[in-house]
Amino acid sequence: MKPYLVFLLLLLPIFSFSQKNVTAKTILKQEAKEIKEIKKFQKELNEEYLNPKETPLRGDNFTHFKKHPFFPVDLKYRVKAKFVKTENPVPFDFPTSSGKTKSYQEFGKATFELDGKPYTLTVYQSLDLMKMEKYKDHLFLPFRDATNGKETYGGGKYLDLKIPAGDSIILDFNQSYHPYCAYNAYDYNCPIVPEENKLPVEIRAGVMYQDIYHH
């Protein structure tokens, strides 16, 4: 065997190890960035509920509030979903907890895998918010899962999204939260999660629920 071939063969394991090391570092860096985003969401949500001008909490619920309980951050629940935009959506009246309705339209379907099984959720767009510059790219994902009524609010949870540029969208359930009605059903009317967005699995991510809230 020629000397330069022997040299190349000796280098292969080193090169392979180096590539794996770089890949591992890249993954860890990306995960650290994602966890930082989740922690930022948690901090901002707590600040909102501690702010008397923004909080939905009233009376003793506000007085006793310190911070939200959250499930431990788990990137398993941050999934990349295939996104199919709904063509020619028809506006409809979204039923709410107060019996009134809000104007929405279906924006698309997000299909993802969790523990090897596929699930699809419908994503919506508020006709009122889309007229506002600040929220013109805002999407709304209400969902229910097997934790509702136990560790999370019985009526389900919400996830805020932005219009994706391509045919995929990130669903980070670590940033899911309860509707205001979970804490104050008297002053708010919240969209009711449609049956098609009920997941038969536990989504152990995002905000948990406490029994101190009287609704």
Rank of each mutant, 00 (worst) to 15 (best):
D74V: 13
Y180N: 07
T26Q: 15
K150L: 06
P200F: 01
K67S: 01
K40L: 15
Y4R: 14
A24R: 07
K33I: 06
D137T: 15
A185Y: 07
S98G: 14
T152N: 01
Y180P: 01
Y183P: 04
K36F: 12
L75A: 12
I38N: 08
K53L: 05
L45P: 02
L159G: 04
Y183D: 07
P52N: 06
F173A: 00
L28T: 13
S176P: 08
Q30H: 11
G108F: 00
K29E: 12
H214T: 15
F112M: 13
E54P: 08
D74R: 11
L127M: 07
Y177H: 02
K39H: 04
S168H: 14
K20W: 14
E44H: 08
T120N: 08
P191A: 09
D145I: 00
E195M: 01
I35C: 05
M132C: 08
K131T: 02
T26Y: 13
Y49R: 01
D74Y: 09
D93A: 15
T101M: 00
Y77M: 06
Y77F: 11
G116L: 03
D74T: 12
G108V: 12
L161E: 08
Y153I: 05
N197L: 04
N189C: 15
R58C: 07
F71Q: 09
F143S: 02
Y135V: 11
G149D: 03
N51F: 14
K100V: 12
Q175K: 09
Q105C: 11
D145R: 03
Y4F: 15
F107G: 12
L141S: 02
K134W: 01
K85S: 02
K2P: 10
Q210F: 03
T111H: 03
K53G: 05
T26A: 15
Y4M: 14
K53T: 12
Y183L: 00
E54Q: 07
L139H: 10
M208I: 04
I14R: 14
K109F: 00
T26W: 14
F92W: 07
N174K: 03
T63A: 15
L129Q: 11
N46M: 06
Q125K: 06
A205H: 13
F92L: 05
F107I: 10
K198C: 02
Y188E: 01
G166M: 06
K39N: 09
D93T: 11
E151F: 03
K2Q: 12
P191Y: 00
M208F: 11
E54K: 09
T26L: 15
Q105T: 10
S18P: 07
I170C: 11
L139F: 06
Y135G: 03
K100Q: 15
S168W: 05
V193M: 12
F65H: 01
P13W: 14
S126Y: 05
C190Y: 02
Y183Q: 01
I170N: 06
Q42F: 08
D160N: 05
A81P: 05
N51R: 03
